[in-house]
Design a protein around this nucleic acid. Structure first.
Lengths: 347, 347
DNA sequence: GTTAGCACTCACCTTGCCTGAGTGCTAACG
DNA sequence: CGTTAGCACTCAGGCAAGGTGAGTGCTAAC
């Protein structure tokens, strides 16, 4: 079921007009606004075909046509021409991005807010995760009697800490000794390297602290497996900019959905693998009931070969795919610089 | 300009009916539903008085009356009787609160979501801040060549860290020595104690590391002055539950406002002093243009004499003050236990 | 194959009418 | 003299009828 050249041109015209106006588009308008060299009547015939083939929908008899999900899919895959950001757009973006970031957390919140502002759509973004983390340094210190602090420095530099109650008395001296020993044993290792035999070796050498060491080792492993992907939702209220969400119930359903971290994570989990390409998910392709009428533009971001994360822009299926893809690509390019800079100077 | 007993009863009836129904309330209904022993006509006369005195508004000639801001204020100050949560409500709340919290951050996000759910209103909440922080422990460690990690443990146990580039070569030995010295100098001190003379003393003893020490001291001071009040907004979409926000533009204005951290902070900054009482701010009493039609119920929370923070519930001026105040009080009572537990076992 | 023409459809807007809830005023009542 | 019943008046909101215009599908001519 191949689409002829002419049908493609007409489909493209319809999708683009509809994206621009949010109104069902009629044959007459296409004939007028696009220089296809065809009369309205001809276009009408083609539109009837396109509808039959499933690329278009009709809201009702006497309205124009609207792209169906299949129509958007074909447009995105075959018809959409890439939009290149203008010099001015890039400069605006850069000056918005150029500010003092306190930490990775703030990069994520600032960047996702910026993306929201540019795209006029809600944005979800994960905190950058450290890929295949390794232990750089483990340190313990007593901060009160019976209370120790474990500090774990990971490959790439993220630092995590945890307080641990110490039941038996452990002196400041002892904790230093344990700390140094553990560090010598664990430095450079990833989650996989800390296996049964390694743990046994540690217990063997410092059996009298076994209970305490177990807590520490568990925490180190937790840090390494670090799959706490915290997600930030920026500019959720932007969804209300779009006429398809002028119905208060629909708006509430969406906002309630996306305000929930778990759901935001589900949305971002739709990316395939670690490719840096931008992926577009239209309507129920997401398999999420609440996202039936929305599309998602997803991208992976990377920095320094160590950090990586995901960004997603959510809008109505009628969203301006070309422009949003371009925005995401432009941001992505900047993000690497910002992240590495912030990362190595993180608080 | 004193309100007679009868006028007060009628005002109270109007406010409560209006809170319950969201419809302007008429004289007839009050006569019917409240056993005031007065006829509709009498009530009508009193209502006319109340309107003249500024306690009531009239949306239009043939609608009922609606409390004015002054009316709500009088109700809240003098007429509202405290609502006591039922045993069932308290149990439900407790079981919702009873879960595993990873850290203070997650307490805040979970608790504010719960409050939102109970009150059906957006909730803003600050992370608990450490009051009058003191240094418990300062520790530095080299995590790479030329890269040191400073760990500062504060009074009460919050831990912060920062990576610092080290220009000159400093050995692991040296860093230990500096670390121990600095710790001996700073342990137990608050921001005010770290004055010029103290700093000079430190520089004097370890002059060769002055540049490095300056960075460390600055960071320690920053931790102590720690006025980064991070704020969490929970259940913003709940605002759409209220009929006064069924207008999409008003809803968007509000959501856009509250999505912005700065604004959420402004709202929470409306509390007076450190009292633990609940405060109610009605309409433009907040002095925030965007909050003209909303009210805020604010409370301070405390834990262990060390932590403190703020919670605010935002709703239409027609919100159920009695119930929301009660909910906040009930939560507040639980919060102390949860926070101290999580705090001393924080990750 | 393409196009002009025409009848038909249907959402949406406007208008007018009606209803019901509520008010304010007045006069009667205890 | 305060309270109440009665009545005329107001006004938002709902509903139906009619008009408008954008758009379609079909047919016949080019």
């Amino acid at each position: 079921m191949d689409l002829g050249k002419r049908k493609q041109m007409i489909l493209q015209a319809i999708v683009e007009d509809y994206i621009a106006t949010a109104e069902p588009v009629g044959s007459r308008n296409i004939a007028k606004n696009h220089d296809l060299g065809l009369s309205a009547a001809t276009i009408r015939n083609e539109m009837a075909d396109l509808e039959e083939m499933g690329y278009l929908d009709k809201p009702h008899t006497s309205a124009g046509r609207v792209p169906s999900q299949l129509g958007y899919r074909f447009y995105v895959d075959s018809l959409m021409h890439r939009y290149s950001a203008t010099v001015e757009e890039i400069e605006n973006l850069n000056s918005a991005l150029h500010q003092r970031y306190v930490n990775l957390n703030s990069v994520v919140s600032v960047v996702s807010d910026i993306i929201s502002k540019i795209t006029k759509c809600p944005t979800v973004m994960t905190l950058p995760a450290v890929a295949s983390a390794k232990v750089v340094n483990v340190k313990m210190l007593m901060i009160e009697e019976n209370l120790a602090l474990i500090v774990v420095v990971l490959d790439g530099g993220s630092v995590r800490n945890k307080k641990v109650k110490v039941s038996g008395k452990i002196t400041y001296r002892e904790i230093d000794a344990i700390s140094d020993f553990l560090n010598s044993q664990l430095a450079g290792l990833g989650a996989k390297d800390i296996d049964e035999s390694r743990i046994m070796l540690i217990y063997g050498a410092m059996g009298q602290y076994k209970d305490f060491l177990k807590v520490v080792l568990d925490f180190v492993l937790e840090c390494l497996q670090n799959n706490i992907t915290e997600v930030y939702v920026g500019g959720a209220s932007n969804i209300l900019n779009h006429p398809e969400f002028c119905d208060i119930d629909r708006a509430r359903d969406f906002l309630r959905f996306i305000d929930n971290r778990e759901n935001a994570n589900k949305v971002l989990a739709l990316t395939t693998g670690g490719d840096s390409d931008v992926k577009i998910i239209i309507g129920d392709e997401a398999g999420l009931e609440e996202m039936r009428d929305t599309s998602i533009v997803l991208a992976n971001y990377h920095a320094g070969g160590i950090l990586s994360g995901k960004i997603g822009v959510i809008g109505p299926t009628r969203m301006d795919y070309a422009r949003i893809v371009s925005s995401l690509e432009t941001i992505n390019a900047q993000l690497e610089t910002i992240l590495t800079a912030v990362f190595y100077n993180e608080e």
